[in-house]
């Protein structure tokens, strides 16, 4: 049987498109079932930041985030995708409020999951107070949605990574998929170096940045459940896998997370470097982990078997 052409072409494009390099809109277009995406408050509504003009800075019509609904393998999903190239994907007042509203709807409905395609440096400096509070509201809304039964999945593989308050929101999600370029942290390398000196963290040492904050380390640590290769199709498959795996949220999950994190601190708290942690996890030749291809790495990560499932 020959599949209809329109079904083949998007999957082929998704397979050959780098998630990292694609725009937020392209990621959504190729992640969801073809033609299923509908945006809420699209760019034609021109709901721009009311604060950037104070700093004489250009606005973007969608304020750097695209939110809406679509279908994933036929099932309805809510989606939000940050554009990491506009102001580093940072959270401002409007940007954050769009995600908050989406999550509040997910809480009321309860059965429709939310996919968040993170790509952010954290709080937008020029509207720092509004951005910080937006992140607090989003964290609250993520938890309320999860308590109401909605799954909230984070996909992390954008060029701005997932930093600052974005890292905290990611920590509130039901599950995460991450690719190698997807970095997750609170303080960025430059911030640590500026505040604590180059001896604490050399932000120009890119290998150090990747192995401390990058996707492979986060997967091996159990901070992310699935490692995706850097294509939109891989993230689509990861999202589907996570949606099928995630269970309901409750107090047991929080207790399990407390135990999981306390155990991590006990086991690896004395490690100086990611390579020491990987070695302690039983990986031979841990120093070669950064070079491993996605396939080999996924096999390794699955063998080590550390996940945060039901413990977050």
């Amino acid at each position: 049987m020959i599949a209809p052409l329109k079904d083949i072409i998007p999957a082929e494009r998704a397979r050959s498109t780098s998630f990292n390099e694609a725009s937020a809109r392209t990621r959504l277009e190729l992640l969801l079932d073809a033609g299923s995406f509908v945006e809420f408050i699209g760019p034609e509504q021109r709901e721009v930041s009311p604060h950037l003009r104070i700093f004489d800075l250009p606005e973007q019509f969608d304020d750097g985030i695209v939110v809406g609904h679509g279908r994933l393998d036929g099932s309805p999903v809510f989606v939000a995708a940050q554009e990491g190239r506009f102001m580093g994907g940072a959270f401002g007042e409007v940007h954050g409020a769009k995600l908050t509203g989406l999550l509040r709807a997910a809480r009321e409905i309860g059965s429709i999951p939310v996919l968040i395609l993170f790509d952010t440096g954290g709080v937008r400096l020029q509207e720092a107070n509004a951005g910080e509070l937006a992140i607090a509201e989003i964290m609250r809304a993520v938890m309320e949605a999860r308590i109401a039964g909605a799954k909230v999945i984070g996909l992390i593989g954008g060029r701005s990574g997932c930093y600052g308050g974005g890292g905290l929101i990611a920590g509130c999600c039901s599950a995460l998929a991450v690719s190698e370029p997807g970095r997750i942290a609170v303080s960025g390398p430059e911030v640590i170096e500026t505040n604590r000196g180059v001896e604490e963290f050399d932000s120009r040492d890119r290998a150090l940045v990747w192995r401390t904050m990058g996707g492979k380390h986060r997967r091996l640590l159990g901070a992310a459940d699935v490692f995706a290769d850097d294509t939109v199709q891989d993230f689509r498959e990861a999202a589907l896998e996570l949606l099928s795996l995630v269970g309901p949220f409750g107090l047991d999950g929080l207790r399990a997370e407390q135990a999981r994190l306390a155990d991590r601190l006990r086991s690896f708290g004395g490690c100086e470097d990611a390579v020491d942690i990987w070695t302690a996890e039983g990986i031979a030749h841990a120093e070669r982990v950064p070079e491993l291809s996605a396939d080999l790495f996924i096999a390794l990560a699955n063998r080590i078997g550390r996940t945060s499932r039901d413990a977050r």
Partner: peptide, 15 residues
Amino acid sequence: SAIVGVVASGNLEVL
């Protein structure tokens, strides 16, 4: 309507 591009250094969006 349609939109292309992104607002970044050396770039622009066109609605």
